[in-house]
């Protein structure tokens, strides 16, 4: 028979203290999260009518969901586009930040400065600023003129042409080139993953590398046999952080669509339904991918 946990004596006292410590969270969660969450879930099944001084939801079944998927001209397209984009970019961000943190972990002059610069986007591209950045017409015009005036000089364009004419997996390459063209977006999103990876790299005991070196292991081999397994738990953390961060960005097309439906069309029910579909999809995606990743994670302790 399984023994039940009993809280007696000091344990009881500690349990009480623990609950008191997390009380703010419990209260906040119950007051400001559970009710709005339940309400928004309920509203997604309703037509919400706003009248002066009050609102009344009228039960409409799954009409909002049907509307979102079958009537709304944009929602399906935006949803699939955004989720595909999220997958691609999250992978790109993880690879990029792992690579950069490997470089930044080496000894060289001006390392502190470079680290500071790579971390700068965490501060400068948050909140409203990122939204303004994404529709900066002036920069877009500038990029267009540069592209027109320097035709054929762009290295990526030449490479793209060579690879395309050689006919290897064109679609995959197109996605890859899209990411390379938008490397700025990747770089500014990878500030926190870089820091997390760096802290992980610094916590690997150096005697492991020394031992491997003495045994005749090359740098490349020790990267895959030591570094990679040792910081694999951090891949999980970074992956979840990146996906969550990417899916909540204010320049996200689905979020923009939801806001538009809510504020301009005043259709609270439809907006709730759309955001719930999006949220559940993201949650499922995170759940599945982190289950897959955590299988490959190696814990040293």
């Amino acid at each position: 028979m399984k023994q039940r946990k009993r809280y007696v004596g000091l344990q009881r006292k500690k349990a009480k203290a623990g609950i008191l410590f997390i009380m703010p969270f419990i209260l906040g969660f119950l007051l400001f999260m559970v009710k709005p969450l339940a309400q928004s879930f309920y509203m997604s099944f309703c037509n919400v009518e706003l009248s002066a001084g009050n609102y009344n939801p009228i039960w409409a079944g799954i009409a909002n969901y049907i509307h979102a998927f079958r009537v709304d001209p944009e929602y399906n397209r935006l949803l699939t586009e955004e989720i595909v984009r999220m997958m691609l970019y999250s992978v790109a961000i993880i690879v990029f930040s792992f690579f950069v943190s490997l470089i930044l972990n080496q000894e060289f002059h001006g390392r502190a400065l470079v680290r500071a610069i790579f971390f700068l986007p965490v501060i400068l591209s948050s909140g409203v600023i990122i939204g303004l950045e994404s529709n900066n017409q002036l920069m877009a015009n500038l990029a267009n003129t540069i592209e027109q005036t320097t035709q054929g000089i762009s290295i990526t364009a030449v490479l793209e042409n060579i690879l395309r004419t050689s006919g290897v997996g064109t679609r995959a390459f197109e996605k890859l080139f899209e990411i390379i063209d938008n490397i700025y977006d990747v770089a500014i999103a990878s500030g926190i993953p870089i820091i997390i990876f760096l802290s992980g790299l610094q916590s690997i005991p150096s005697n492991m590398y020394e031992a491997a070196d003495i045994e005749g292991c090359t740098k490349w081999e020790s990267l895959w046999k030591i570094t990679f397994p040792m910081i694999s738990p951090l891949f999980l953390v970074c992956w979840i952080y990146t996906v969550v961060d990417f899916s909540m960005h204010s320049d996200n097309a689905v979020i923009e669509k939801i806001q538009k439906v809510m504020i301009e069309q005043m259709n609270y029910g439809l907006a709730s339904a759309m955001s719930w579909v999006y949220f559940l999809l993201i949650l499922a995606f995170i759940g599945i991918t982190s289950a897959v990743i955590s299988r490959g994670v190696y814990y040293y302790e």
């Binding site: 999260m33 009710k35 709005p36 928004s40 969550v244």
Partner: peptide, 16 residues
């Protein structure tokens, strides 16, 4: 709480 986008509950927080 980390995972829920605040936009999901925005409308009902409004009303709340």
């Amino acid at each position: 709480v980390i995972l829920i986008p605040p936009q999901t509950i925005a409308s009902s927080l409004h009303l709340h």
